[in-house]
Design a protein around this nucleic acid. Structure first.
Lengths: 192, 192
DNA sequence: CAGCGTACTGCACGATCGGTCAGTGCCCGC
DNA sequence: GCGGGCACTGACCGATCGTGCAGTACGCTG
C-alpha cells in the first residue's frame, strides 16, 4: 500500500457518499465500487484520492472528530456553570451537523475499534462523559449519559423510519434538546 | 436458492456465533466463513442447516422478535395501570437476554430494511412506542422512547467499552431499570 | 448385513472484494 | 507549441464472497 494520499479539495460529495454507505451498511459491508458509483466516479479514482479504504474512512470521519474535540473543550471551559443548557443546544447542533459520522461512530464503533479515528472519537466521548459525571459515584451518570447520547445518535438517522412523515431538522433539534435536557440536566432544568 | 432449510435442533452455538458476527460487523460485513469457523464447522455445513445467509439471519433473530411480540402483548394488557415499573424490569430483562439480537436490530436495522424479521421487529417496536405515547401529542413521547430504547440497546453491548472494568449483568440491569425508569416513567416514579 | 437418512465436508462456480498499474486527456506555465 | 503534472480511467491481480453439488462417514431400522 502506497502511503501517499492526495488530499482532494473538492471531495465533499465523495466523502458524503462514503459516509452514507458506512453509516448504513458499516465499514466492512460498504464497497468502494458502490461508494464511487454513488459519487459519480470510478473506483480507481477513489483510490487515487485516498490511499486505501481505511484512509477514506479516516477522511470521512475526521471533521466530526475534530469538531467533537472543540465541543469537549467548550464543555470543559464552562465547567459547572449555569449555561449548561446553552451548551446542550450547541451539542445537539453538532450532532445534527455530523449525523452520519455520529451514526458510524456509535452504530459501528465496535467493529472499527483499532482504527485511529474511532479510537480518538471514543476517547473524546469518554472525556465528555467523565466531565459530566465527576467523582466516584458517577457510574450511573455515565450510563445515563451513554443512553442519552447513543439514543440521540440513533434517532438522528432513524427518526424518519419511525415517524409517519419526514421529521424536519428543526423539529428534531427542538425535540432532542428537550429530551436530552431532561435526561442529562435533570428534570429541574426544564424550560418554561 | 433451494427453499429447504433443515431446522437443526442443537444449532445454538452456530446461531450465537452468527448473532455475534452480525452484531459486530453487520450483516453484509459478516462472512459465512468466519461464522462457521467461529462455531467450529465448515461453511458448507452452515448452508446445509440454513438455506442461505438470509435464512441464517432470520433464524438468529427470530427468538428475539417472538419474545418481543410477547412483551408487547404483556404491555398491552397492563395498559395504563400502576405496575409499569414491574413491566420495565421485565423489559430490561428481555433486552439483556437478547442483547446481541437487539444490537443487530437497532444498529444495523437501516441496512436490513426489507428482510422479513427486521420489518416485523420494526413494527413491534413502533407498536410499543405508540402504546407508550398515545394521543396526538405523542411525538415528543415517541422521541423520548426511541432515545431511551436505542440508547439502552447501545449500552447493552458498549458498556464494557466505556467502563474501566467489566460491568456485571446485574449492575447493568439495575442501572438500566433506574435510568429508563426515570426516562419513560417520569421522575416522579423514582424508587426510594 | 443391506439400505437409508442425517450431518457434514471439499471442491468448484461466478461475482465481487480491495488494491496496483499503465495509460489518457486536459490544463497551465514556459 | 510543448512539456509536465493533475485528475481520472479500464484492465487486471489474488483473495474472498455466497452458493451449488457430489461425495462420505455414521447411526438407525429392516
Amino acid at each position: 500500500m502506497q502511503d501517499r494520499t492526495r488530499e482532494l479539495r473538492g471531495s465533499a460529495p465523495l466523502l458524503e457518499s462514503a459516509l452514507r454507505q458506512f453509516a448504513v451498511v458499516g465499514f466492512e459491508g460498504a464497497s468502494l465500487q458502490r461508494i464511487a458509483a454513488d459519487a459519480g466516479l470510478s473506483k480507481s479514482s477513489v483510490l487515487y484520492h485516498f490511499a486505501s479504504k481505511e484512509a477514506l474512512l479516516d477522511a470521512a470521519l475526521r471533521p466530526a472528530v475534530e469538531d467533537l474535540a472543540g465541543v469537549v473543550d467548550e464543555m470543559a471551559r464552562i465547567a459547572d456553570a449555569a449555561p449548561r443548557r446553552a451548551f446542550l443546544v450547541r451539542f445537539v447542533d453538532y450532532l445534527l451537523e455530523h449525523r452520519l459520522a455520529i451514526a458510524v461512530i456509535f452504530n459501528h464503533g465496535q467493529a472499527l475499534a483499532g482504527h485511529a479515528v474511532i479510537d480518538e472519537a471514543d476517547r473524546l466521548v469518554r472525556d465528555l462523559a467523565d466531565r459530566l459525571a465527576p467523582g466516584q459515584g458517577g457510574e450511573r451518570e455515565v450510563l445515563r449519559f451513554g443512553v442519552a447520547l447513543a439514543g440521540a445518535a440513533f434517532m438522528l438517522v432513524a427518526a424518519d423510519r419511525w415517524a409517519p412523515a419526514h421529521v424536519p431538522d428543526d423539529e428534531l433539534r427542538a425535540g432532542l434538546v428537550d429530551v436530552l435536557g431532561e435526561f442529562v440536566l435533570g428534570p429541574a432544568a426544564q424550560p418554561a
